[in-house]
């Protein structure tokens, strides 16, 4: 392959990987590959695919109806390839019967040998190797730990010697939620925390959920830590445990948004129900 063709092929591989080829370019590309007697080099497309993974948010699985479509097309695809293979197999079988009759029986010797080996192995296992069953000590029933309520867990955290971050909740950008209040307590050391919230309305779980976001010292402001989703099922004060999906260190701001059921990966911040800004960091609990 001369240098000029090689350069053109590299150019077209690159163009194809980054921007795609139009019909004319594709034809030129295929002709060049054929003339040069070389195959497609995946390395350009693989490099572009790897770059395409950067910042890609894989935030939801395939929708069920689409998954069903893909499975149906897979069934169709595999059925058609299986049918093709069967045709080929039958043809081969015919050839064997017609031209090589001995081969159709030659497997019998191997089959007998295999059966004999299995029988011998089973005999050795049963008579010489298999461990005797020994009655073990009776297991002492374990005590079921008492599950504390969020109120009790919060009380325990407040009573502990851990350094705590505390902040008060105020209103967000949802005009109707003007009476939201409460506070949040977080321990870096224990990686646990609780929100005590008031004025947050009971949500319709089928339509929306609340989601907490933790802005801490370790994360970029564009990527706060997901503090978990929660529902409010009663009026008045609710205590919600924080379910931080990553280690949060030195939280500076807690934001509660209203999202679709299950929560989101990317919040558009359209409905911020409440905000709690930490004024003082890592206050020691005394």
């Amino acid at each position: 392959m001369n240098k000029e063709i090689q350069e053109s092929l590299i150019d077209l591989h690159l163009q194809r990987a980054v921007f795609g080829l139009d019909a004319d370019e594709k034809q030129t590309f295929e002709s060049l590959l054929a003339d040069a007697g070389v195959g497609l080099d995946d390395s350009f497309d693989l490099a572009a695919a790897a770059v395409g993974l950067i910042d890609l948010q894989i935030d939801e699985p395939l929708p069920p109806h689409l998954q069903a479509r893909v499975i149906a097309s897979a069934d169709e695809y595999f059925a058609s390839t299986a049918a093709e293979n069967e045709t080929v197999d039958e043809d081969d079988f015919q050839k064997v019967l017609t031209f090589e009759p001995k081969r159709s029986w030659s497997w019998l010797g191997w089959a007998f040998a295999a059966v004999a080996c299995v029988a011998l192995a089973a005999n050795i296992w049963v008579t010489r190797i298999a461990p005797a069953e020994v009655a073990g000590p009776t297991k002492t029933p374990e005590k079921t730990p008492v599950k504390l309520t969020p109120e009790q867990e919060l009380a325990q955290l407040l009573a502990s010697q851990a350094s705590l971050v505390k902040a008060n909740f105020g209103v967000g950008n949802v005009k109707e939620l003007k009476d939201v209040g409460g506070d949040v307590v977080w321990s870096d050391e224990k990686q646990t925390g609780f929100m005590r919230l008031r004025g947050l309305p009971v949500n319709d779980k089928t339509k929306e959920t609340y989601q907490l976001w933790i802005f801490d010292k370790t994360q970029d402001k564009a990527t706060p830590i997901d503090g978990g989703t929660f529902d409010v099922d009663k009026n008045g004060e609710v205590i919600v445990p924080i379910d931080a999906k990553l280690k949060a260190l030195g939280p500076e701001l807690f934001a509660i948004t209203i999202e679709k059921p299950g929560g989101v990966v990317v919040s558009k911040r359209e409905k911020i129900a409440a905000l709690a800004k930490v004024e003082t960091q890592s206050k020691t609990n005394t």
Partner: peptide
């Protein structure tokens, strides 16, 4: 861009990190 969950960003695949 609107803010994105850090854990998802952190869970960027090995391939994406290398890229």
């Amino acid at each position: 861009e609107p803010f994105t969950r850090a854990d998802k960003a952190m869970q960027m695949s090995v391939e994406a990190n290398e890229a």
